[in-house]
Design a binder for these strands. Sequence first.
DNA 1: ATTCTATGGGAACATCCGTTCTATGTCAAG
DNA 2: CTTGACATAGAACGGATGTTCCCATAGAAT
Lengths: 220, 220
Amino acid sequence: MTKGKLSDRQRRMLDFIRHFSDENGYPPSIRDIGKAVGISSTSVVNYNLNRLVEEGYLRRDQNVSRGIRLSEKLTRATQQVVDTLRIPLVGRIFASEPVPLPSTDSLMFGVDEAIEITRDMIPSSGEGLFALEVKGDSMIDAMINDGDIVVMKQDLEWRNGDMVAVWLVDREETTLKHIYREGNRIRLQPANPTMPPIYINDPKNLQVQGKVMLVVRQLQ
Amino acid sequence: MTKGKLSDRQRRMLDFIRHFSDENGYPPSIRDIGKAVGISSTSVVNYNLNRLVEEGYLRRDQNVSRGIRLSEKLTRATQQVVDTLRIPLVGRIFASEPVPLPSTDSLMFGVDEAIEITRDMIPSSGEGLFALEVKGDSMIDAMINDGDIVVMKQDLEWRNGDMVAVWLVDREETTLKHIYREGNRIRLQPANPTMPPIYINDPKNLQVQGKVMLVVRQLQ
DNA sequence: ATTCTATGGGAACATCCGTTCTATGTCAAG
DNA sequence: CTTGACATAGAACGGATGTTCCCATAGAAT
């Protein structure tokens, strides 16, 4: 195994592959590469591609057109990799209405409105996250202000102490509270320690709509 | 231009294209898509791809295998190349102490403790930013909780309505309040609208130590 | 000189893959 | 009912593309 330096050709091939992929959104074919680097024979391109695979510069998928992918090191060096999450901003949250949940539409497509946060802000996987803008002063007992952005996770599971968005059926009201299961009843505790809790005895009266993961307040 | 809604199929196709590209480094072929979405006919896949092009969701290159590329909006959701700011976490903020300001040391040298935020969260240049962790319940009148992270800007300038960190000399107390100049006196207004303001008549009694740009609360 | 190995070239081949054509079904408008 | 736009299916065609085989060249090792 010649674990050696790359030939000039191979260097130009790598360069072209990167450039081409960047330009077109898909990798070049063998003949594309040959034309760009000045190799008339597809077998020679194929040969050098295999050499590059051996050297660890790229991976190939057999019998797949354009089945070339640059190795991690190379893509790293090229594109700036920042671990961020793009979270769709699916609506506003009012006390008088249930929380607008993300539709499949808004999750996948044309959401112009979104917030971008670094991944280390949220420990979990990033699945099922969506963001809401808080309107009005009704959430001040959750220490959340008008204009704040709440990042929530659509998740049926919750544990004691989680802050969740709940819809109180009989009051027709959405609130953000810390939730605790206490025997047969459920305690909803405001984040503001000076405010009293709410107790829910009938589980049907309470719909947990999401778990609050992050609150962001932009002041300027 | 038929600017209509996407069918469920088309939605799944887009979803698959994104996942496949992400997974393999190159786009799927028509038959790949068909198999994944459950379409036996290549012409139907082709038909729907063309619809998606019309709707602006992707671009195609004719007669090129895997010549599919997601449109800008969609790729943005996939790849995350974002401008981020690394802000040093220089200390904790107590009500009983002045705000710890960043020393030249901490600015120059590797502060392991830092938070990373996307640049769009803070409109200004990013100069003079530093972060503090709030300890204790003393900032609840600013709607800021124990454990919250406050991103501040070291800045002598402030304008009416800014939220600032001030050191009240006679009270020996740090608070976060909205600040207003009212004639000869200064009004410090809690963010919580239910709480009363403080009035400062002697300017020497007040030291503005920074302007609050962002508040982040991680719940989980 | 001979042999071996690495590299390059050309052509044939098989398959991959986009394109196109025809047929079918649905549904709302006329 | 008829018509036309729209969506789906299947099949066939042809170009795109990876693979393979044979041969040539150059340089190093024997």
